[in-house]
């Protein structure tokens, strides 16, 4: 674990950021640290965290998934339509929608891995196509309300703990096992670091790529399903905000957008940072516009922290490192 942290300084920094933000928020708005408020912050952060789950895997693998908004939105709309407010229908509706999300992910992954389409374009096109199709299908009309079970999953509690918080913890464990403890994780980091080296090393690169997009499609669909429980209905455009936040959470969590580094534990911190900021700004009497400005600034600051430029700028201020001879290349 120590070694993990040593190699992932950025994740630690992200958590430090969470703590600082909590303290600052508490200072300006004393009610913020009340159990009820913390709970609602956790619920909101969990949605970001669940959407960013798949995005984390895709970005570590060197890709990006821009199809998340409308996968999420489609899942939400279709869920309410399929279930018609009945819990019983969820037995088949939820698995079907998760499989559907995975299928869309498969399409994305196949386009990227097999046909060599740049991920930005592939997932962008899929996003637009899904948007159009669901609009055509629903005709833009409102949909029936959400089944009670979904509401329980999204806003219910077990004792003092929100159910969705438990879902999030479970996902965190799954992600950690996959990334740090499994052969798949090694393959994924290798793929993100260099697709050619991975290919030459016998890593199933196409399969690994496709799996990451399938995971992303599935978690986007899951988030869509749960979001209907939070808002009570599904509506058009409900996923749009999550494109930005999913990428931002991963970036703030210390992953390189080029792939090969990062961890879901970092993304968790990223999701918390973004959500706490959303809670902090009303306390400071700041508008939505100001929130966007702060979001942008936070991203710039966090990604610059990882920059090697600081090292170069300050190298003269540091004591010279232990000398080692003849180990440079050329």
């Amino acid at each position: 674990m120590n070694r993990f942290l040593a190699r992932n300084r950025l994740i630690l920094l992200a958590y430090a950021g969470v703590v600082v933000l909590l303290l600052v928020t508490a200072l300006f708005s004393p009610g913020f640290l009340s159990p009820a408020n913390l709970r609602s912050t956790l619920v909101l952060a969990a949605f970001v965290g669940i959407v960013a789950f798949g995005q984390t895997f895709v970005i570590i693998g060197g890709g990006i998934d821009l199809s998340i908004p409308w996968v999420l939105n489609c899942a939400a709309l279709l869920l309410t339509m399929m279930a018609g407010g009945q819990d019983l229908a969820l037995i088949w509706a939820i698995p079907l929608l998760l499989a559907g999300g995975a299928a869309i992910g498969f399409l994305n992954g196949a386009g990227v891995a097999i046909f060599g389409v740049p991920p930005i374009i592939m997932t962008l096109a899929v996003n637009v196509i899904l948007q159009g199709l669901i609009l055509v299908y629903t005709g833009g009309s409102p949909t029936p309300s959400t089944p009670a079970l979904i509401k329980f999953l999204a806003v219910g509690r077990v004792g003092p703990i929100p159910v969705i918080g438990l879902v999030w913890v479970a996902l965190g464990i799954v992600a950690t096992v996959l990334l740090s403890k499994s052969a798949f994780g090694r393959h994924l980091y290798a793929l993100g670091t260099s697709a050619t080296v991975a290919e030459f090393s016998g890593v199933p690169t196409a399969r690994t790529t496709i799996i990451t997009y399938m995971i992303s499609g599935m978690t986007a669909a899951l988030a869509g399903i749960l979001l209907t429980g939070y808002s009570g209905v599904a509506y058009l455009g409900m996923g749009d905000a999550y494109l930005f936040t999913s990428v931002a959470a991963v970036a703030i969590g210390g992953a390189s957008i080029l792939g090969g580094s990062g961890h879901y534990l970092g993304t968790v911190a990223g999701a918390l940072v973004l959500t706490i900021l959303t809670g902090l700004l009303p306390a400071l009497n700041l508008s939505n516009g100001a929130l966007l400005v702060v979001y942008g600034a936070v991203i710039l600051v966090t990604v610059s922290i990882s920059s090697e430029t600081w090292g170069v700028l300050f190298q003269h201020l540091r004591p010279p490192a232990r000398e080692k001879q003849g180990e440079t290349s050329g």
Partner: peptide, 15 residues
């Protein structure tokens, strides 16, 4: 800072 254009411009877009 040798940053990725995608992230930098995502941030400035937001700002």
């Amino acid at each position: 800072f040798r940053l990725q254009p995608f992230l930098v411009t995502l941030a400035t877009w937001s700002i």
